[in-house]
Amino acid sequence: MIRPNITRADKVLLSICIFLSFSSFALVKGMIPAGSEVRIEVDGRLKYTLPLNTDRTLEISGIIGKTTIEIKGGKVRIKEAPCTNKLCIHQGWVENGAVVCLPNKVIITVTRPSGNKVPDAVSG
């Protein structure tokens, strides 16, 4: 059963949604760890692990073509991509988190160096 007119529950729900819209950016920003290592994955396989503090530009081959990645001043961006929507390019410079190019299956993540990580458990 759905009511035809706006109810109080609707207004409460809408308020919660608006509150979540504003707070989610700050919330998520706190959850993403600041990184210093750039990991570049193509089609699910790790291709490069590069330091974020060394400036360089590199071209990598993805599924549909070449993606140009630029690291500069502690930030990373996708400079050129073969896809049609150029989403990854529009995202611009990234300090932490990730840049994803789905059509070319290129995923760039900025993480902490894996050497600093302590394993949860070691077997055998």
Partner: peptide, 10 residues
């Protein structure tokens, strides 16, 4: 009978 189409849509 709690929500109208607005709440359901959200």
């Amino acid at each position: 009978r709690l929500f109208s189409p607005l709440g359901i849509s959200l």
